[in-house]
């Protein structure tokens, strides 16, 4: 019984969060004295033999033309077919990953734990730690089912690469027509934008940014740091920023290495979405803003004065 890792691509490129998941899967396989297999679905621009660097010897590639567009139901079918001999299926947390994990769990009658934050304890049984209550606590869950699916949060492991290369095999399971019954009418996607779930650094703005026309200083810093951009709920409710940037309890939950909050008060519902971050920086003109209590570094002052200074320092020191 092996470990299967679903490797997600975006525009054909393998996502960074999936490389972490792959490394995670290889570690689990080592713990269970078995091997990890990667499963790539859809067209791949990345050279898939390089996935060997993350600890997998074999890559299955399902490249049927109908899989070119990410379709959670069809993808779940492919994952379930590839998981026939797997005990553990590892999937990086993402909106696609979540949706297909649930369908695959239904197909396989697998135990499923979401938001896993560490490698499992396999010394007796199979126990995993995951983030619950939107980051306000953790649970250790015993997984008793013969098949187990884990969705893994960013930063659960830090990959150490080898120079191994993987062999790539085509994988062509039956694809039921029913999984393609929904018609995609249109797709709107910000191109070239770093996705929040993949970003190591996020610069995020709140109502303190004053309005949609004042975002440039924040975007400049994000660019200098190669960061993704996020926002608080009122900001997306007011249409200052697109909804997919909304972070928090009712938005996207992120766990980057660095989260920089600009003019965000730090309401508990916002904190819930960011408290998995390694380092939090808060910039707010109000020294009493609750966000400072959750921060590692803080600057009290006007965002419109501070952001340009940070951008300049970043450009000088990072040469960006």
């Amino acid at each position: 019984m092996s470990v299967l890792v679903f490797v997600e691509t975006d525009g054909g490129e393998v996502k960074k969060s999936s490389l972490e998941a792959l490394y995670y899967g290889a570690k689990v396989a080592a713990q269970l004295h078995t091997t990890a297999t990667a499963l790539v679905i859809g067209p791949a621009a990345t050279d898939l033999t390089t996935l060997g660097q993350y600890g997998t010897a074999e890559v299955l590639h399902a490249s049927d033309a109908r899989l070119a567009q990410a379709n959670p139901m069809a993808y779940a079918g492919v994952v379930a077919a590839a998981a026939e001999n797997a005990e553990v299926v590892v999937i990086a947390k993402s909106s696609l990953g979540d949706a297909l994990a649930a369908r695959a769990a239904g197909k396989l009658k697998a135990g499923l734990v979401s938001n896993v934050t560490e490698l499992p304890d396999t010394s007796a049984g199979f126990r995993v730690k995951s983030s619950i209550y939107t980051g306000k606590a953790f649970a250790v869950t015993e997984m008793k089912a013969g098949k187990k699916i884990l969705t893994v949060k960013k930063n659960a492991v830090s990959p150490e690469l080898t120079d191994a290369s993987a062999s790539v095999k085509p994988f062509a399971p039956a694809l039921p027509d029913a999984d393609f019954a929904a018609k995609v009418l249109s797709t709107e996607k910000a191109s070239g934008e770093l996705s929040l779930s993949d970003a190591d650094i996020i610069v995020s703005g709140g109502r303190g940014m004053k309005g949609p026309d004042h975002w440039q200083p924040l975007l400049d810093l994000a660019q200098a740091l190669h960061a993704a951009t996020g926002c608080s709920k009122p900001v997306s409710d007011l249409d200052w920023r697109p909804h997919h940037e909304h972070i928090g309890q009712t938005g996207i939950k992120v766990s980057p290495n660095l989260y920089i909050a600009c003019g965000i008060s730090g309401a508990i519902q916002h904190l819930a979405g960011v408290n998995g971050s390694k380092v939090i920086v808060v910039i707010n003109k109000d020294p009493e803003a609750p966000f400072f209590k959750a921060a590692d570094y803080g600057i009290v002052g006007d965002v419109f004065e501070i952001l340009p200074r940070l951008t300049q320092a970043a450009k000088e020191q990072l040469g960006s």
Partner: peptide, 22 residues
């Protein structure tokens, strides 16, 4: 039952924030 929570944990308390002059 396919999964069972055996233990809960609270996150470690956050250290003090380091303030930097504007």
């Amino acid at each position: 039952s396919l999964t069972q929570v055996t233990q809960f944990e609270l996150p470690p308390a956050k250290g003090a924030v380091k303030m930097i002059p504007a």
